[in-house]
Design a protein around this nucleic acid. Structure first.
Length: 595
RNA sequence: GGUCCGGUAGCUCAGUUGAAUAGAGCAACUGCCUUCUAAGCAGUAGGUCAUUGGUUUGAAUCCAAUCCGGAUCACCA
């Protein structure tokens, strides 16, 4: 149990015993004490001053006295400044914490929650390669699943591949028209990039045809429908739906190329899925909901035969759930897929990692399922994230302003190589070791960059400036880890005598700062889960690394003042390295032994 | 137009269940490598927390209005 959770009921008890004042533990405001004051944790007193008719100073002194008297093993000192009661926790408590956990590989992990959570993420289209926006999605989804997993939830990572529709047909038509049978192999191109090129070719040709028609005097809106290449694409979609053999063969072939390409990228960045869904299999789902919904009066039918739900009472609009020709729309298949997932996995929670442009859609999805009284409706959570934008606005694939995921990784690897060579610290590494280190640093920098920001906020990426390796970055934290490991290696295989710290001298300020932070790790995990927000972990691990570096510069571990100090600091360093490695692994980031 | 999200240092972001003098990183400037990794540390400078009003002992945080930016409201996906 965390120290704050431990303290709260003790304070509540004092308030009750001395003043007959009942307060919920959540009403107590306890913060870490600011470094300029004496103490570890601080109780804010203002809220009780009025009700108890005492001055903050008097109140603080009385509570402080009572706490020390009742729990001398826990509280050793206090001071009151203005309305703040600063409490000092005994060194014994911190030593005990360190002793219990310095070698505990499970530190921070939660007990089994007996709950299953599905996390759907990535969900790419098969007509173009992954870009920076996908990376944010993938890193977020993977990370939140990992955080849940380590905290005791059973997780199932899933992916819906958007493998059908007009956009896929565009690449297919363009390939038929312009490829002359070229393949990824024949052109030595990664499959997803290869197909993406034909998607671009389609758009170029389409634009040209529209311009020609407009030049001949046709109205633009009509020209956009009449362009021959567009008509051919629409015909192809119809043929696909009819199951035309040749079209299906081409579709399978081109999607296969894309999957090969995605596979390479997924493997490199560490993305994985336990369950794949393909839209070509799910796009007809959900029609049974329409029947049921009509019967229950949740949906209604218009004269033209289309089916709707009226959500105006919930502050939304009327939403179409079935076209007049009886075909499904997007929301219909999402209803069906939610149901299918539940059938298969009986999830307690289902998290959808989808960009915030679909906030409305996801709100409607959950609302409809609630109105249909689906047992799993409450467990649906949209992990909405902001778009990654360029300094001059959104990335547009048609305008060629997307930052390609593979290119981005390659560039980061180059930066990692350059910086490593400049510093020349790992000249004895083999080629393989160097390759691994560059990958570790490159992906560490990239993942940290995308995960350190609150998912809800849209973020700006400037391709002109490569991602930094100093300061609030992945490599800074990786460096700190390598540094600690270096010290631990030099210390040798010291089997730390945990008893030796029982009589140790006072814990110094910078040691205390570090140990207090370490103790908060499990609380951070809880917070990250409560907020569905991996940036909580990223910020925490950064602060931990920073705190270690300050300590490290000021105090020597191996040449500590006394042998007990040395033991204490080795344990402290060891736990710090472990929490850094553990926290970073929750973000999907590896930490090197040396760099 | 309706709904939702955002506006904090030159830049990128924390802080938003109200609490001490609003914090980091980058960029700028100044120091620190003969002892554990300087991808580091210490320091200087940089703020009308979009604006106005309100609630409160106390507001970047809550409420209202306004300004600015974005998303969304398709028989598109």
């Amino acid at each position: 149990m965390s120290i704050v959770k431990e303290i709260k009921p003790l304070i509540a008890a004092v308030l009750k015993d001395h003043y007959g004042f009942s307060t919920g533990e959540t009403d107590l405001t306890i913060n870490t004490t600011k470094p300029e004051f004496e103490g570890d944790y601080t109780l804010v007193l203002f809220s009780y001053v009025k009700q108890l008719k005492k001055s903050p100073e008097q109140l603080g002194n009385e509570i402080g006295d009572a706490l020390i008297k009742a729990h001398p093993q826990l509280f050793v000192a206090y001071n009151v400044i203005k309305g703040f009661l600063n409490l000092t926790i005994s060194d014994d408590y911190w030593r005990q914490f360190l002793k219990t956990n310095y070698n505990n590989q499970q530190f921070g992990f939660g007990q089994s929650k007996n709950q299953k959570v599905m996390v759907e993420y990535s969900s790419p289209n098969t007509n173009k390669p992954l870009h920076l926006g996908h990376l944010r999605n993938i890193f977020l989804g993977w990370s939140i699943a990992e955080i849940l997993n380590r905290s005791g939830y059973e997780t199932v990572k899933s992916c819906v591949v958007n493998d059908r529709g007009i956009h896929i047909c565009k690449s297919m038509i363009a390939w038929q028209l312009f490829a002359n049978g070229a393949t990824p192999e024949s052109t030595a191109t990664k499959g997803d990039h290869f197909v993406g090129e034909y998607y671009v070719k389609f758009n170029d040709a389409y634009k040209q045809q529209v311009d020609e028609l407009v030049a001949k005097g046709m109205e633009k809106a009509i020209a956009e429908k009449e362009a021959p290449i567009m008509k051919a694409t629409q015909q192809m979609l119809l043929d696909w739906e009819k199951g035309d053999k040749d079209v299906l063969a081409l579709w399978n072939k081109m999607n296969g190329w894309v999957y090969d390409g995605f596979g390479i990228t997924y493997k490199r960045i560490g993305a994985d899925f336990q369950k794949m869904y393909y839209e070509s299999n799910t796009y007809l789902l959900g029609k049974q909901f329409v029947e049921a919904g009509l019967k229950e009066g949740v949906f209604f039918k218009k004269e033209d035969g289309s089916v709707w739900i009226d959500l105006t009472a919930d502050g939304l609009d009327e939403k179409l759930v079935l076209r007049k020709d009886g075909t499904s729309v997007y929301i219909t298949q999402d209803l069906g897929l939610a149901d299918q997932k539940y059938d298969e996995f009986k999830y307690d929670q289902s998290i959808y990692v989808i960009a915030d442009e679909q906030n409305y859609h996801m709100k409607v999805l959950k609302l409809i399922l609630q109105k249909l009284n689906k047992p799993y409706a409450e467990g649906i959570f949209h992990l909405s994230y902001g778009m990654v934008e360029l300094p001059n606005g959104r990335m547009k694939s048609r305008e060629g302003t997307v930052v390609d995921a593979d290119d981005m990784i390659t560039e980061m690897v180059n930066v990692a190589r350059t910086k490593t060579e400049e510093l020349g610290k790992v000249k004895d590494f083999t080629t393989d070791e160097l390759k691994e280190l560059y990958d570790t640093l490159a992906l560490g920098a990239l993942k940290f960059f995308l995960l350190r920001v609150d998912p809800k906020k849209r973020m700006i990426f400037n391709p002109e400036e490569s991602i930094d390796f100093h300061g609030f970055t992945g490599p800074f934290i990786q460096y700190t880890h390598a540094r600690i490991k270096s010290v631990l290696r030099k210390a040798g295989d010291v089997s730390v005598n945990a008893n030796i710290i029982e009589t140790s001298e006072p814990i110094l300020k910078l040691e205390k700062e570090l140990i207090v932070l370490l103790e908060q790790y499990p609380v951070m995990l809880d917070q990250a889960i409560a907020e569905h927000n991996p940036s909580v972990i990223a910020i925490y691990v950064f602060n931990l690394a920073k705190s270690f570096n300050t300590f490290y510069t000021e105090h020597s571990v191996l040449n500590a003042e006394t042998e007990t100090k040395k033991q204490f600091r080795l344990m402290l360093s060891s736990l710090t390295a472990h929490v850094i490695a553990s926290g970073m692994s929750l973000l999907g980031i590896k930490v090197p032994e040396r760099m």
